[in-house]
Amino acid sequence: MKDRTVLNENHKLAFGCSGIAGLYRQVSELEAETVLQAAWDLGIRHFDTAPHYGHGSAEHRLGRFLRGRSGWVLSTKVGRLLAPDLSPPAVANGFHSALPFSQRFDFSYDGIMRSVEDSFQRLGLNRIDIAYVHDIGDPDAGTNTHAHFQQLLDGGARALEELKSSDVIGSVGLGVNTVEVCERLIGKMPIDLILLAGRYTLLDQSAEVRLFERLRAHKIQLVIGGVYNSGILATGPVAGANYDYAPATPDILARVREIETICHKHDTALATVAIQFPSRSDVVASTLIGTAKVRSLERNVAQFNETVPDELWSALKGAGVIGATK
């Protein structure tokens, strides 16, 4: 058995492919290819996708782009199965460039095996480096039930272990939005990485408080998505700003205003600090960004690579914004 896929310095910044599947707006094949090429030209070699993204269109588009190239690391997700839909909606789960399929959750042994096989077909590639169990234990998705967890623990986890031991996939992970599900599953199944959205940011450091020591003990790498908490840490406390996919409350607006003031005192943009914050931890192996716009991608990469003065991080710690709960 080959060693598991381990993210290193070359993978500190990852490109998430939900945007190229038309999340929130229609995205053409040409637009998708253009932004993927821009990511490649900017040195990004770590790409993340999922069957959920456009009912397979993100996997299809990413696979076509990566075919014939080398040196990349690819993660996709398991737990959802797609089936042809004769009457597909114009917009599927927020994706405007979706393929004509429907989806259902299946975390069973057979479901995981089929999910991986289907992803290989859509990608048109012969390698999947990381397979994340997608959205298990998510109350919004309806997967926080005993039945879903039993499917995974009674069969799905075994399927993933077999796929890894036979070199079909490189590593096994969780792709989730809550700390709670990580706490529940660490130690119950083999986990090499966790892709966690929105729980280690300037506004929410619950992952650090509740998970970091367990991650170190189990040698689990962490990939952080949602660094802007769905918008407000990029836009600042403007009218209509969103926090965790809902309008920001007055308390959140006030907290962001305080953080932004500290950043401005050190001549640094809030978004720059937000995108760099997770990577300062030894537990975080990669920071995930996603967009279908080249200009946004270029801005994100520039901000990730910008030099932030140590005094700014010290000021944020002194104000209790970061590190206060250690």
Rank of each mutant, 00 (worst) to 15 (best):
A83K: 05
Y24N: 12
G68K: 02
L86N: 11
T49G: 04
I130P: 01
S28A: 09
R216H: 11
Y24I: 09
Y132S: 00
K2V: 14
Q221F: 04
S18C: 13
Y243C: 09
V78D: 11
I136K: 11
G226M: 12
A285F: 01
H146N: 05
D167C: 11
V223Y: 01
R25E: 11
I224Q: 11
I252H: 01
L215Q: 02
A58T: 06
Q37W: 00
H134L: 10
K12A: 10
T76E: 09
R210H: 11
W313F: 05
A131K: 03
H46I: 06
T261F: 04
H55E: 15
K293W: 00
Y53W: 12
R216C: 04
P190F: 09
R184S: 06
T201N: 09
R257A: 15
H52F: 15
A38G: 01
I44C: 02
G16N: 02
A14Q: 05
S206P: 00
H60I: 03
L99S: 06
F47G: 11
L30Q: 14
V133T: 01
S281A: 15
N300I: 01
R69L: 10
S75F: 08
R210V: 00
L62P: 08
I322P: 08
H11Q: 02
A319T: 00
A38Q: 13
E162A: 15
L288P: 01
W72P: 07
P237A: 12
G323Q: 13
R255A: 15
E260F: 02
G54A: 10
P247K: 06
K219R: 15
P250D: 05
G16E: 01
K219S: 15
K12G: 03
F47H: 06
L185A: 01
G225Y: 06
G225I: 02
A147N: 08
K12M: 07
V209S: 14
A285T: 05
T307Y: 00
D138Q: 13
P309K: 08
V294Y: 03
S286R: 11
F101D: 01
A269T: 08
L99K: 14
N305G: 10
P250I: 06
A21N: 03
D85G: 05
D267L: 13
D110V: 07
A324D: 10
D140P: 07
L163K: 08
D251H: 11
V284Q: 09
F101A: 08
V91H: 03
N229C: 13
G142W: 09
A234E: 10
W313M: 06
V294G: 02
G124W: 00
I44G: 01
